[in-house]
């Protein structure tokens, strides 16, 4: 059986809110070491990869590997019944046809229990090879979100150009064009606002901006986001979840025919 108590229940709410526009149904794979999820969007352009290690939970128990087939919209609805400060406990027995969710506020004067039906999801899994990225950008997650939204007002596509001077986001549409350039920050100041660029070679790629806007809904999970690019491979957009996991998105590029 699975019994996983998440002291910071809000983390689960944020994760599910961040992926709900991309993925409708997903398998949550539970093992002794934690919970993982891998799912593609229906158009097979974007992939979500979640890792929540057992350290995120206290306690965490999973005797045998369990796959929980979850309708994300249903989970969003049930999680709306929890408070932001609630401790959330997930419980499932074998065979996993239901998932129990228990919400407890810090006061412990209220316990709410919900049970959601699970589904059989025929999920194809992709092997994501280890990639030596040519350009890795770490920047404030809020800045990334703002830039993506701003670029979306002009075009469906955004071009990201990483050089040693900085990273430039640009969009060109029927109404006009625009760009935002972030310069590489100093090495002394390493606050969340600092933009750092690790470059093997200058890299430019173009992506559908609507996916990036969706990914950036993860902003509340982490102060910083990491963008990793190697042309012509998919870009990695990563949000760390404290020291106990990550939410990664892979996005296939757009290319000139």
């Amino acid at each position: 059986m699975l019994e996983a108590r998440l002291p910071q229940g809000a983390v689960l709410k944020k994760i599910v809110d961040a992926i709900k526009e991309i993925v409708s149904d997903a398998n949550f794979d539970c093992t002794d070491s934690g919970i993982t999820l891998q799912a593609m969007d229906s158009s097979h352009v974007a992939l979500v990869s979640l890792l929540l290690t057992s350290e995120a939970f206290d306690p965490y128990r999973c005797d045998r590997n369990l796959t929980l087939g979850i309708n994300i919209k249903t989970l969003v609805q049930i999680l709306k019944c929890s408070g932001n400060d609630d401790v959330i406990t997930l419980r499932a027995e074998e065979p996993a046809d239901t998932l129990a969710l228990v919400f407890e506020p810090p006061s412990l004067e209220r316990i709410s229990e919900y049970e959601m039906k699970l589904m059989d999801i025929d999920n194809e899994r992709l092997e994501i090879p280890d990639t030596a990225y040519h350009a890795e950008i770490t920047m404030a997650a809020s800045e990334f979100q703002r830039i993506c939204r701003d670029m979306q007002t002009l075009s469906e596509s955004v071009t990201i150009e990483a050089t040693k001077e900085g990273v430039k986001f640009s969009a060109e549409g029927e109404l006009g064009s625009g760009s935002v350039t972030l310069k590489q920050g100093g090495s002394i100041d390493s606050s969340a606002e600092t933009t750092t660029i690790e470059l093997v070679q200058p890299t430019t790629q173009t992506f559908s901006v609507k996916y990036l806007v969706n990914f950036s809904k993860s902003t509340s999970l982490a102060g910083q986001v990491r963008l990793a690019m190697t042309a012509p491979l998919p870009m990695l957009v990563e949000y760390k979840i404290s020291d106990c996991g990550h939410l990664r998105f892979f996005l296939a590029p757009k290319i000139d025919d």
Binding site: H44, V45, L47, R125, L126, P129, F250, A252, P253, I255
Partner: peptide
Amino acid sequence: VVLQCLLRGFFQNV
């Protein structure tokens, strides 16, 4: 013409 690539062109099925 700008074409949207699919993930399957880069990642293999397990």
